[in-house]
Design a binder for these strands. Structure first.
Lengths: 188, 188
DNA sequence: GCATACATGTAAATGGTTACATGATTGG
DNA sequence: CCAATCATGTAACCATTTACATGTATGC
């Protein structure tokens, strides 16, 4: 009756966060931002390993507010559309910290390239070589991007953790490039 | 009335395959198998980079039959439950080949470990170190598994393509281990 | 005159997961 | 006697994506 018609995921409060919720809380942790702001910041930071769609950002934000993990504030603008600014709450910080403590399950890793390669015998060899080349180009681009970000990085104490993720990306890109070169040789 | 109540995704026929459909067709390409068989084969082969849930295998198989890409045959058994064996059709082989030709989009890569690490400042440092250690252990296990598979591998011409995927895994595992060792040092 | 940046949302489809449900046979 | 293997499926849930929808201001 009164209101407990238990829809989908009413609480979230005591539940553990989804990765996207956590990512947004993490970004909100260093200042009030709009969905639009968050989207841009995602692209230049966590987007390399966690990239929610724009529509999903706008879907998650109100959920955070409902759960008391963030607060919304409307800002009227004259020459721009009005915007909603979100600010993390103390509960939000606690939820983020709790999520950070949860062990990360071994990620099985989805890799469509490897899937195609595995069945390569049933397809066109030239196409397979091209797939590998494309992946190598992607890896070279990734490496270039990361080196540029690295060069611009502050290297302050707050940069400590993000630096770990950049290094991961570089190691990954190098491994990919080495593998692709070898694979191209194998298929030549 | 008659049956055309147009449900979700009636055709599939001319559509490009999903990765899971392709994976199952690829496995069916070398012989008639049941859902159960496929599940086991997935675990020991493509499971390293594409791992559908059991329930999804059973959901996809009938779809393949509806689209004319596979045929089903029921086998009565006395001492075991009856089983459904699936066999790939010519159309199925064509669909697989077509899917193999489609370029692979750059995979943005979801990595929850990196997400946690990126926001590591908001959590407990010891927990972060433990996350990295766990990932290193996973990588070492992966490497051991792959080396064993490599040792048992046939190295026949049909093994050419699968060999590419094993090598990828080894390069990846090594990169992960190197990174983790470095990261553990950074956080010590 | 046109593209881009600013700004926020909804709707529909879907690929996929976990949990539920059942039950015989074989081997230790 | 108990666990594992064989064997198949349904139901509920859900995170996420793509497409739809709208409108102003700025800079080229």
């Amino acid at each position: 009756m009164s209101s407990d018609n238990s829809p989908i995921r009413t609480s979230l409060a005591q539940t553990t966060l989804t990765s996207t919720e956590a990512a947004l809380l993490g970004l909100l942790a260093d200042g009030e931002q709009s969905g639009y702001d968050l989207k841009r910041r995602v692209e230049r930071s966590v987007g390399y390993f966690w990239a929610p769609a724009r529509s999903q950002i706008y879907a998650v934000l109100p959920r955070l507010v409902d759960a008391g993990l963030a607060r919304r504030r409307q800002v009227r603008q004259s020459s721009r559309p009005d915007k909603q600014l979100y600010r993390i709450t103390q509960d939000g910080r606690a939820a983020l910290a709790a999520w950070l403590d949860v062990p990360v399950a071994a990620e099985p890793g989805h890799n469509v390239l490897l899937l195609k390669l595995f069945f390569g015998d049933h397809g066109d060899r030239a196409a397979m070589v091209e797939h590998v080349r494309a992946r190598r180009r992607d890896a070279e681009q990734l490496k270039a991007d990361l080196l540029e970000i690295e060069a611009r990085a502050s290297h302050t104490p707050e940069d400590r953790f993000p630096a770990l993720t950049r290094r991961y990306g570089l190691e990954y890109a190098d491994a990919l490039i080495r593998w692709a070169e070898w694979a191209e040789g194998q298929l030549a």
